[in-house]
């Protein structure tokens, strides 16, 4: 565990800090060699925030999410969730994966209710119904995942993630596999959902536009080892306007970070 005396300024306001990561380091052993995946990560997420994490693939952002979620262990650093140290997954922290991972043998309603098996039946059905409505899939409760399109499946995955009313929802590139138009549609929808439910959301993405549009704050990470370069706070109004000058400014700022690595090829587009 980390050195307690090295608390940074931000930590002192940890009372409304729903996710608290301090001096987190993570190594993986690949071919008997240790590789630094995350280096000295410090991050505080306030309740109700929408934080986006953007960076190259391989920069450890998915790993960071999984550590917060409790799916990956950590040895070096502090990671706290809802005021408690993270020791594993829990009902108050949901997750949405890039491949929707709806279980193909369950109907949509049973997928959405997958984490609610401890609830009495009536309550579970109610929660499922409400969250299907939330994502607009109430007509597909009895369908199977194979009958849904990619966008619909991801909506169902989001419903599943929110069905237990967690305080935190982590999203690992949830729209990465969808076409551009669907992606934009779902970005709007996820904002609406967040407004309705007030869930704290942390989303990892490749897509710079998405990171700016959705994030109250944007965590810019570099690769090998994964480090936080900067945390950009966005203007809540301007960052929701894709054609505003402020939007473009944020975009350039983030781009510049990735132009720093001279050996990489870049696509002039919306994604890295």
């Amino acid at each position: 565990m980390g050195n307690i005396t090295k608390l940074s300024k931000k930590v002192q306001s940890s009372k409304d800090c729903i996710i608290h990561v301090e001096h987190l380091n993570k190594q993986f052993i690949v071919d008997k060699q240790p590789i630094d995946v995350l280096k000295d990560i410090n991050l505080q997420v306030k309740k109700g925030e929408f934080v986006t994490i953007v960076g190259h693939s391989g920069c450890g952002k998915s790993t960071l999410l999984k550590i917060i979620c409790g799916l990956v262990d950590y040895e070096d650093g502090i990671v706290e969730r809802n005021g408690h140290a993270v020791v594993g997954p829990g009902p108050k922290c949901g997750m949405v994966f890039q491949d929707h991972r709806l279980l193909p043998w369950l109907k949509i309603k049973d997928n959405v209710g997958f984490g609610l098996r401890d609830l009495p039946e009536e309550e579970r059905e109610e929660q499922v119904r409400r969250h299907l409505e939330l994502v607009g899939l109430e007509d597909f409760a009895n369908s199977y995942p194979s009958q849904l399109s990619g966008g619909m499946s991801q909506r169902a995955a989001i419903a599943r993630g929110l069905a237990g009313n967690p305080t935190i929802l982590l999203l690992d590139e949830p729209f990465g596999a969808l076409d551009a138009l669907t992606r934009i549609k779902l970005q709007k929808e996820i904002l609406q959902i967040q407004e309705k439910k007030g869930t704290t959301m942390v989303m990892v993405t490749h897509d710079i536009d998405e990171a700016i549009y959705l994030g109250d704050r944007i965590v810019v990470m570099s690769a090998r080892p994964g480090e936080i370069k900067e945390i950009i706070e966005t203007d809540p109004v301007e960052s929701r306007n894709r054609s505003s000058v402020t939007f473009a400014r944020y975009k350039k700022k983030i781009y510049d970070y990735f132009f720093e690595d001279s050996n990489e090829k870049y696509e002039m587009g919306y994604a890295i």
Partner: peptide
């Protein structure tokens, strides 16, 4: 295994 049958008959949603 009802979900396998649906795969075979190619039922899928039309909207996104």
């Amino acid at each position: 295994t009802p979900w396998i049958q649906l795969q075979k008959t190619g039922g899928s949603g039309s909207q996104s």
